[in-house]
Design a protein around this nucleic acid. Structure first.
Lengths: 332, 332
DNA sequence: AAAAATGGTGCAATCGGTTGCAAGGCATTT
DNA sequence: AAATGCCTTGCAACCGATTGCACCATTTTT
């Protein structure tokens, strides 16, 4: 089916090496042979077989992109950015959907079979052991949206979740809410626990304000809604820090059920600042996570690992900031 | 870095062929050698290099998954389903993000370089020429969410957009709306035009009901909102068929700006029935598109093409149905 | 004009597998 | 006991590329 090097070489009347070199940037070919080869290649519609060349070069330009987060709308933006950033640099994303998978072994084997040059673990809910498993198998890895503290062995890119928790707490306190709650993602996700920790730490400076905690079953609309409905059935706090915009939006829908107006009746602050949060009738006050910078940095790091395989592991942490919209009451 | 066939053969004390055959289902190996090889393989942590074997077998199990639709939340579901369906069958999705790309040539070359076994074009806005380009390059292709009429050369899986247009028109008429409008996606998308055609055809049976048409710039929230704001500034119809749920949701947000209640003040019916449309405070009446069936059928078709490369092209069209929620007024 | 440096080219080995073919081993048949 | 057939195995060629090395033709230096 495909045209091969050999056929081009035959048509151009040169050796296979010459053809190979024509398509290898930086190789030594004279203008004359290059012209002959390019003419023949165009005529035949030749393009080099990347997989065959990977055999000798040891590079496939394939990057494993693994995630388990296909229900949070923020991941539309994440996938869009990742796929574009990778292909802009001539790298190809090989997607692995890890939903319902708890064991790294399978994906490690699978991605090694395809000789990926590196792996990006894009998830805040996969345990650090996943990234670690790739590292141990000798595959360069960066954990995007990962936790820096517990994985000093792999590259991590993301935000300081503890600091975000503090930031949310400060914001709620500054609005004068008399009781606050944390409504986090799944309790086994490091991101959910770190955000809680920061929130609790900061609230400890305000002992007169009671703090409650709860965790939704997933980072999803339904989980956020269900958890907020449960809270509303009891004795809810005056304001909540939801661990993710999608939880916030679920919570907002629960408030609507009870005829409560976000902001004035119950305050909500989210985290992520995804596109949807800007929608007029959601209009969520939230902590902006710089997705674009995080993804660019992740891909940068991938490229650098390809150049320097034994690169010393590093955490790239980006600051977040509060985006004020309509779901918190004004400062007194 | 990786363990090779040769090393396993050496350790097991057999030829390379024996090792290869042990890992090739259906090859002839005695129980004894198989045992020796498997022991050695486990000891070394060997797993075969899929790319190297593709050289001789001509199969990579790589499937190009190309789309330009990273702003419509329905694609979260689409990507989730596609990646899972593919990997369940031992196939690997290689994603190509075609946003802002108008020329098929690049992606064709790129995917041929990686010797993908087949390509899935998952988009209702990419012109048929994309799928066609892969077909012409000798790459098996299925166009999911494609238009069956104009691409008899490639496999198409999806819905009958014209019929959906009719269905929407019938629904609006049955609710007794005295004027109706079509608010479609980008005018160069076949899906937008086909839905319009069906809508117009059906409305022709009701000449007393005036019909208007407009097209949003994209299948996106912002585009739907902007277009509806424009309509509201003039003399809006009593009900609209929006060519996609995401347009509907944008339109709903525009209604909210004007203090209009969907259903009673202005009717909206969408198309897709994405997860979000079920959210309580969206609660969109819409036409359900059977995403799961469409994707399963697409992957089935891919598998069948791998077995029978010269398969006669075929269209698999799935019926849709109206899901009644809260954005149309009740039947009189 | 001779010697040295430079740049271009082809040969052949190699990457990690697969597979057609022929030979060997063993059990079954006559 | 010889002949037949079936399995199993290893050899060696091949898949489509890359690359170290040696060789050759130029050009530059002296």
């Amino acid at each position: 089916m495909g045209v091969t090097l050999k056929e081009v070489a035959a048509l151009a009347g040169v050796s296979r090496s010459a053809v190979s070199r024509t398509f290898t940037p930086g190789a030594s070919v004279s203008a004359k042979t290059r012209a002959k080869v390019e003419k023949a290649a165009k005529e035949l519609g030749y393009s080099p077989n990347a997989l065959a060349s990977s055999l000798t070069t040891g590079r496939t330009k394939l990057i494993g992109l693994i995630s388990n987060n296909f229900h949070n709308p923020i991941f539309l933006e994440v996938f869009d950015q990742f796929t574009r950033a990778l292909q802009e640099r001539g790298l190809r994303p090989l997607i692995v959907n890890l939903t319902d998978e708890t064991e790294p072994a399978n994906s490690v084997r699978m991605l090694r079979q395809y000789s990926v040059d590196a792996v990006i673990v894009a998830s805040s809910t996969l345990p650090p052991s996943f990234a670690k498993a790739f590292h141990d198998a000798g595959v360069p890895v960066v954990h995007t949206f990962g936790r820096s503290a517990t994985s000093p062995e792999v590259h991590v890119v993301g935000i300081d979740n503890v600091e975000c928790g503090r930031m949310a707490a400060r914001e709620l306190v500054s609005r004068g809410y008399a009781s606050v709650g944390y409504l986090g993602g799944p309790i086994d996700a490091t991101s959910a626990r770190d955000r809680q920790r920061g929130f609790t730490e900061e609230m400890a400076n305000h002992p007169h304000v009671p703090v409650s905690h709860s965790f939704a079953g997933a980072y999803s609309f339904e989980a956020g809604r269900a958890e907020m409905l449960r809270l509303l059935a009891g004795d809810p706090a005056q304001a909540y820090f939801c661990g993710d915009d999608i939880l916030s939006i679920g919570a907002l829908s629960a408030l609507a059920d009870h005829g409560l107006k976000p902001g004035s009746d119950i305050g909500i602050i989210g985290l992520n600042d995804m596109e949807m949060s800007r929608w007029e009738y959601i209009n969520l006050t939230t902590i902006h996570q710089p997705i674009k910078q995080i993804i660019t940095a992740s891909v940068d790091l991938v490229e650098e690992m390809l150049k320097t395989p034994d690169r010393y592991p590093e955490a790239r942490i980006f600051p977040c900031r509060v985006i004020e919209r309509g779901t918190l009451r004004p400062r007194p």
